[in-house]
Design a protein around this nucleic acid. Structure first.
Lengths: 221, 221
DNA sequence: GTTTTTTATAAAAAATTATTGACAAAACTT
DNA sequence: AAGTTTTGTCAATAATTTTTTATAAAAAAC
């Protein structure tokens, strides 16, 4: 279990790190949001403990940035206990929230709870539904409002890839690399054409596929 | 297909019931969690549609209680769409989640998707029938509309493997690996040829074997 | 407000994939 | 050992999918 601890107070980082390691995990540290984002680009953490008030880049902004390219569970740490912060935090995809002062034990319990939840979620991922769009990756079926959608192989693969990387910005290059394979030497516009077909097959749920101008696409739910 | 619909609003129960019966199922109703638990003790339902906010006993508590003595697939219906609720729902063994307002068609698609997968679990049966196709895995007999079908050994093996993995997308490689064995170094087209023979022997029930272009085959019922 | 860049769409061309039948090889039967 | 059945290979064909290309539309930049 790799935990990234982001806080500008070294003492707090130290205490949390000690507890994480006591439970058999590995702790990584960042002193501010900027550092946290950088570390997340380079590493795959299982969970992030993120303070809110920090120099250079605050916790909320850092989480927002990280969520653009990776889907990692986040627990916010904060001195402020206002309800407003809490809600705002949940809105950007935060999984839990702890207000300072906290007991390290409490934080550990929450880490375990969040991870367990995420894990259980992954295992149940046979059938996923977003509004009226049902995607069965094992049976290779996609339903649009109960009606079966007939997709071509590439369309299935793109959609499944989108779902597995939902809410993450994907460049055409990344899509080509991961869906087509490293040995594809075709045009970038190929992606566009397949996106067009997929959108038309998803009918009204084409809205989930958003165009990121100058970048690529994102499956946003 | 026996479906238990649990919701305190009679109108919602009515609409869902109508759709379930339209698709050939039987719908049972409960107005709150208490009733639902009671009905589950007395009957064997195939799936439960459970509202969350209800008088007397809420949906989550009801599911928790029911899961203590019976393992039935559950789809939650809820007016609240907060992510937190969703996760909490999955933690107690909920199979899917629909937020109100929903279209009944959408709910039916999810019921079908969940049941197909769950149905695959009662694979320990030795004799199984799909419409007019009866497969006796112990006696090594296959009947097409009562008529005994003479299959070759490989054809039996493929069919049995299909049945044991029904509604699951299977690649040719997986079929070769599991039916032929890891030490088979032949052509991919070999699978196609045997599928051809099996299909022709299954007569009209060849429809159960669907081709997944670019992937392989699936036995879909 | 015009130009440039980027994306969407449609249709044609190219490439891929599944189906099928014919046949050879292997494995049983008698 | 010859005959029979089963299994695996291959290639032609048919069907479908993917990619390219051309053009239109939209967004961003100037």
């Amino acid at each position: 279990m790799k935990v990234l601890i982001v806080d500008d107070e070294e003492m707090i980082r130290g205490v949390l790190k000690e507890y994480v390691e006591f439970e058999g995990g590995t702790a990584y540290e960042a002193g501010d949001g900027m550092e946290a984002v950088k570390l997340c680009r380079e590493n795959d953490f299982d969970i992030i403990l993120m303070d809110i008030m920090m120099p250079r880049l605050d916790g909320f902004s850092a989480v927002k940035e990280i969520k653009k390219f990776k889907d990692i569970p986040v627990i916010m740490l904060s001195a402020r206990s206002e309800e407003y912060d809490k809600l705002f935090g949940f809105e950007i995809g935060v999984d839990d929230y702890v207000t300072k002062p906290f007991s390290p034990k409490e934080v550990m319990a929450r880490i375990n709870a969040v991870l367990k939840r995420k894990h259980g979620e992954d295992n149940n991922k046979d059938v996923i539904t977003f509004e009226g769009l049902t995607i069965d990756m094992v049976g290779r079926n996609v339903y649009v409002d109960g009606e079966k959608a007939e997709l071509t192989p590439k369309e299935y693969e793109i959609l499944f890839y989108f779902v597995k990387n939902k809410n993450i910005a994907l460049t055409r290059e990344k899509l080509l690399m991961d869906v087509w394979g490293f040995d594809f030497y075709g045009d970038d516009r190929t992606v566009d054409t397949h996106i067009k077909m997929l959108r038309s097959n998803l009918k009204q749920y084409r809205k989930f596929i958003v165009t990121l101008r100058g970048l690529g696409y994102k499956f946003e739910v």
